[in-house]
Amino acid sequence: MSLSKLSEILNADRTRLLAEWVSYQNESGQVRGDLITERELTRESEQFFELLREALGRESSAELHRPGYKGVRDFLGELSRSRSRLGFTPSETALFILSMKRPVFGAVQRAFAGDAAGQAAALWMATELLDNLGLFTMETFMEAREEVIKGQQSDMLELSTPVVQLWDGIVALPLIGTLDSNRTSIVMETLLQVIVQTRSEIAIIDITGVPTVDTQVAQHLLKTVAAARLMGADCIISGIRPQIAQTMVHLQIDLGNVITKATMAEALRTAMHRSGFVVTRKSAGGLLHQK
């Protein structure tokens, strides 16, 4: 019993097999009619059937990594990736291969009528092959999901670190949420990037929205300040709430010679002063103007 024999069986029974396979998929109730049309499904099924039949004629084992299966792998990989993106569930995606079992087994039974030993060998071979194909589908599906998740994670991290320009040469980074090392590296990079783009010599890092400052967070902040200094910009850390100031002293966290301010307003005042700007009130109750 060889795979090429299986290929012959599939070919001989082609029309019936394909019809059964497509109708099983449709009857399973798991085909997402909202996401894929019946025509598309039929076309995909036919295409895959041809690729598989060709591969079986060339290869002598069911190991999918062999070169003869390249076409099959590419097609199936693209199929599960696109279904993953379209929002199919894992079982809806796996159905494409799993629903092939019944028609293939049927075809094998018909081809080996009366030959129990041959039938058993062929069934075993078909099972192994379809299981491998099913596993491959799932692996690609999960990989595609992981890629989507990773992409979303980094999008979210970037969104959560907006750097704003407050004045000529002064940028601010209002930090909200917990600072872990993954997030800090993105925060650091974004801030330094904006410093270069805007040619800003002063950056205000506001930590009003950071729930706790432990040794690690302080460490991250200090690294950011050190990197900015290497590039020629000074940092001011603002928004240190009273309880955070207390914990910091408690934990003996030393921010070194970094300028710290209680509020962002105060930090801005310091930044303006250092860059040579003067803010004066034109008249009592009027608006603030810059001279």
């Binding site: 270069v196 900015a228 290497l230």
Partner: peptide, 22 residues
């Protein structure tokens, strides 16, 4: 460059006493 600055800090080199500008 930002990437260079980040790497230097991680390496443990802060170049104290060296003036820097953008």
């Amino acid at each position: 460059q930002p990437a260079v600055a980040i790497t230097l800090v991680e390496l443990g080199l802060s170049l104290d006493g060296v003036h820097t500008a953008l």
